[in-house]
Computed example of a mutant assay.
Amino acid sequence: MSSVSTTGEKKFLKWTKSQWQEMLTNNAIYIVIFAIIIFIIIREPAFLSIHVFKNILTQSSVRLILAFGVGGIIILQGTDLSLGRMVGFAAVVAGSMLQRPDYANRFYPDMAVLPLIVPLIIVMIITGFFSGVNGWVVAKYKIHPFLATMGMMITLYGILSIYFASGAPGPQPIGGFDDRYTNLVIGTTLGIPNIVIFAILTSGLVWVLWNKTTFGKNMYAVGGNPEAAKVSGVNVTGTTILVFVFGGVLYGLGGFLEAARIGSANNGTGFGYELDAIAACVVGGISFSGGIGKVSGAIVGVLMFTIISYGMTFIGLDMYYQYIIKGIIIVAAVALDTKKYLKKS
């Protein structure tokens, strides 16, 4: 055993200059992120605490669910700019249906108390439908996902704003949530935040779908080479629509959880969430080149991005500087991913 280990160490030490350069290039984004994290820890040692760790996991949970939703679309060589508006739509609809009966500014004053599962199913159907429309437009009319989802993003914001203003109190933040709803999301089970449990269960479901089902195999095949997949008998149109629908269902779940997590919802909820989700996927190795991406990569990407965001706020870094750092990381991650793809091709 020790001789094998020694041999491996010798090979590692004998790497050529080009091998070292390739290794550093392929992992440059992780090196930079770890350097930022180390800087944060040195600046504020209190960052290494159980309280901070729990907060990071809590903030990562919804982001991870959203990253899985858009991750499948990225594997198809696509993207989804409407993600944030779908999250906002789900948050507003779920929140409007799950307010306390004694709350003075109820969106629906005469609505009976609903089982929690009913609004959840409703918002997942709504967002799944809208996302399915995105997939249908992309697959049927060959419109680039960037343009198709940008159109949906704008349309959804209009529909959401109309709905938001239609409630009994008028256009004002929706709050006063039912305690059952709040406890379901921000409560704990055996010391673990419930919202983290939702993320863990979703991770398991997505891993099975991506790795152990025909749906997952077809998704990777279409993302890797749509023409070859079609020749092999894969229904490219159907697979594309299904991937978008599944992404939409996850956006609905994310919006349902997010409203209770932050304690309110309005027509601005979810704004910009698509950028964080897409960035986390790219940092985690889910490639825009198509056909490449793992559940573990999405998890790593989300955790790294959340740690950086939380850490920069923790040390009091101005928000404008945070935007600059995040933007550089996103561009660097995409550039490195493109470089790796060009090398392979």
Rank of each mutant, 00 (worst) to 15 (best):
R261V: 12
I186E: 09
F256I: 13
T202G: 07
V196S: 13
G187N: 07
G170W: 14
L190T: 13
Y181W: 04
T155Q: 00
W210D: 01
G224S: 09
T214I: 12
E258R: 08
A165N: 12
G151K: 02
S232P: 00
A199T: 14
V231K: 11
M152T: 01
I197T: 15
R261T: 08
N194Q: 11
E258S: 11
W210Q: 03
V249N: 07
L184Y: 12
N267V: 01
Y157R: 14
L257Q: 12
G268A: 14
F164E: 04
G263P: 13
G176C: 14
G191V: 08
G191L: 09
R261A: 15
F246P: 02
L242V: 00
L253M: 15
G224D: 00
Y220F: 14
A260W: 06
M150W: 04
T182R: 12
S203V: 06
I159A: 15
V208A: 15
F256E: 06
R261H: 12
P226Y: 05
G238E: 08
G176E: 11
V196A: 09
L160S: 05
G248R: 01
G175V: 06
P171A: 15
A168W: 11
P171G: 14
L184E: 10
K217F: 11
F215A: 05
N235F: 02
V249G: 03
V234R: 02
V206S: 07
N267K: 14
M152G: 01
G170C: 08
I154D: 00
N225T: 05
A228V: 06
L205H: 10
T237C: 02
A199H: 13
G263H: 10
A259N: 14
V185P: 08
M219Q: 04
G204V: 12
N218W: 04
V249S: 08
T237A: 13
M153Q: 10
A265W: 04
V249L: 15
L205Q: 09
F246A: 05
G238C: 11
I192D: 05
T269R: 04
A260R: 03
V231F: 13
T214D: 12
S203D: 00
F215L: 03
G176T: 11
E227H: 10
I174V: 15
N266V: 09
V243D: 01
N267C: 10
G247S: 07
T269A: 14
M153I: 02
F198P: 03
M153V: 06
F256M: 09
L201Q: 08
G204Y: 10
P226M: 10
N235T: 11
M153L: 15
L160P: 01
T182V: 15
W210F: 15
L253T: 11
I186N: 13
G252T: 11
M153H: 05
S166E: 08
A221T: 03
T188G: 01
R261W: 06
I154F: 11
V245T: 05
I159K: 02
L242R: 13
Y181A: 12
T155M: 15
A259C: 15
P169K: 15
L209K: 04
